[in-house]
Design a protein around this nucleic acid. Structure first.
Length: 418
RNA sequence: GGAGAGAUGGCCGAGCGGUUGAAGGCGCAGCACUGGAAAUGCUGUAUACAGGUAACUGUAUCGAGGGUUCGAAUCCCUCUCUCUCCGCCA
């Protein structure tokens, strides 16, 4: 959520920043200011009346004296009730706008409408030289380590199963990624995959993106779309964090669930776009002045995983129009997929500044005062896509199979699968 | 799932219709004492919104929502959560 005070004090700057994402937000700012103005006038009136009522009540010491002021207080109460109701209505109108407004792009976020205007920061690694690169599902299904056919009967489209060495490879990746995070002093959490709507509102998935989530019937509970939600929301209990405890670095391995509404027809084959996938998530909670340097550290942590797996990738700085709702600045890491002859997203590292912290009421104490923290999140990494990238980049040119990355060989006890 | 008990500030805990935003203790911070520390003493120590350059002022908040009342942490209703016992169960 954006800071209402900032909008009030500097509406033009907010309009310019939001306009970089989508022009339609500019008009909403004007509406917001009008509602806010009305709301404050009403609050002042209501507060004055309440003050008057309190003073009258305080002057009464016994039941008998009460008779003198009963009528007066009742009439004040009637006025208060009307004003309070108006304030509730205005507040709802205000929330209906501000909860649907995305974070302001940072100053160094490039202008641009969509992914075509993203900036490549750098690329790493050597793309494999292959005569006829096969897609990962072709190799994996033929090897019997990945199944879609039976699994679709079990669960529907966009679900798959890892089998035998395939399942073990997934486990190896999870173990490897968690160890890397532990070595970098991340605190591992193993949170539930079911979470309250309130927290999803805090991190920005709700109310705007409800259709992307799996909602449990007759509850306010949802399946997590990413461990970003439980990790970022973990300390959102209203109790301020200690300044000395920041930055907090958290990691978690969880399944992630996405309805993929609106993705019909895209990436229908293989592991790229599934309803359920595993991911190791990294979250930093830090002081406001540190968030941009923490963001660089976070993205380096994710890159480090790709480098140790020796997977060719590039880092992209997203333009304003392509950035996620809660992010102020975002790097995507994209891994090379030989069969598609293109890079595909494998990690998205966002600096959400105080946007989620304000919604979650996530604060730290500095000099006796509570201040909003900044929150950052990034994948380190999406396991299914990493699995697929390994199969494709390490595939053998002369026969069916692929090599196992060096860092996973101890765990897998083999160097090649064919 | 059945029965009972409970939910008060960072924590423990008093209060059971008015002077209580909330006693007391612990914790924490500052100051004094000390060569330094411990102990001790003193002082301070919730959050949000609105107004004000500010000091500050007003309002709201004692699990959440609603009600009774001139006035609610205190009384009533609903919900949520926690604990204990029983049942069931990875």
């Amino acid at each position: 959520m954006l800071d209402l005070k900032l909008i009030r004090q500097n509406p033009e700057a907010v309009k310019v920043a939001l306009g970089k994402r989508k022009l339609e937000y500019i008009k909403a700012i004007d509406e917001l200011i009008i509602i806010d103005e009305k709301k404050r006038i009403i609050q002042q009136k209501a507060d004055e009346l309440k003050s008057e009522r309190n003073n009258l009540s305080k002057s009464i010491k016994s039941k008998d004296e009460a008779i003198n002021i009963q009528a007066q207080v009742k009439s004040i109460n009637a006025q208060i009730q009307v004003l309070d109701q108006e304030q509730i209505t205005l507040n709802e109108a205000l929330e209906a706008i501000i909860l649907y407004m995305p974070n302001l792009p940072s100053a160094d976020t490039p202008d641009g409408k969509d992914e075509r205007e993203n900036q490549e920061i750098h690329s790493w690694g050597n793309k494999p030289i292959l005569n006829s690169p096969k897609p990962h599902w072709e190799i994996a299904e033929a090897l019997g380590i990945l199944d879609f056919e039976n699994t679709t009967r079990l669960s529907g489209s966009r679900f798959g199963s890892f089998i035998g060495q395939g399942a073990k490879l997934q486990r190896a990746l999870i173990q490897f990624m968690l160890e890397e995070a532990a070595n970098a002093n991340y605190l591992e959490l193993s949170p539930p995959a079911i979470i309250q709507g309130q927290i999803l509102r805090g991190t920005g998935q709700l109310p705007k993106f409800a259709e992307d989530l799996y909602h449990l019937e007759n509850t306010d509970q949802y399946l997590i779309p990413t461990a970003e939600v439980p990790l970022t929301g973990f300390y959102a209990n209203g109790q301020a964090l200690k300044e000395a405890d920041l930055p907090k670095k958290l990691c978690a391995y969880t399944p992630c669930f996405r309805s993929e509404a609106g993705a019909a027809g895209r990436d229908t084959r293989g592991l790229i776009r599934q309803h359920q996938f595993d991911k190791i998530e990294l979250v930093h909670i830090c002081k406001p002045e540190d968030s941009f340097s923490e963001h660089e550290k976070l993205v380096r942590q994710a890159e480090n995983i790709l480098e140790k797996l020796e997977l060719p990738y590039r880092r992209i700085l997203l333009c304003a129009g392509d950035m996620g709702f809660s992010a102020s600045k975002c790097y995507d890491l994209e891994v090379w997929f030989p069969s598609q002859n293109q890079y595909r997203e494998i990690s998205s590292c966002s600096n959400c500044t105080d946007f989620q912290a304000r919604r979650l009421n996530l604060k730290f104490k500095r000099d006796q005062k509570n201040e909003l923290v900044h929150t950052l999140n990034g994948s380190g990494l999406a396991v299914g896509r990493t699995w697929a990238a390994i199969v494709e980049n390490y595939q053998l040119d002369n026969k069916l199979g692929f090599k196992i990355p060096k860092v996973l060989q101890d765990y897998m006890k083999i160097s090649e699968l064919s």
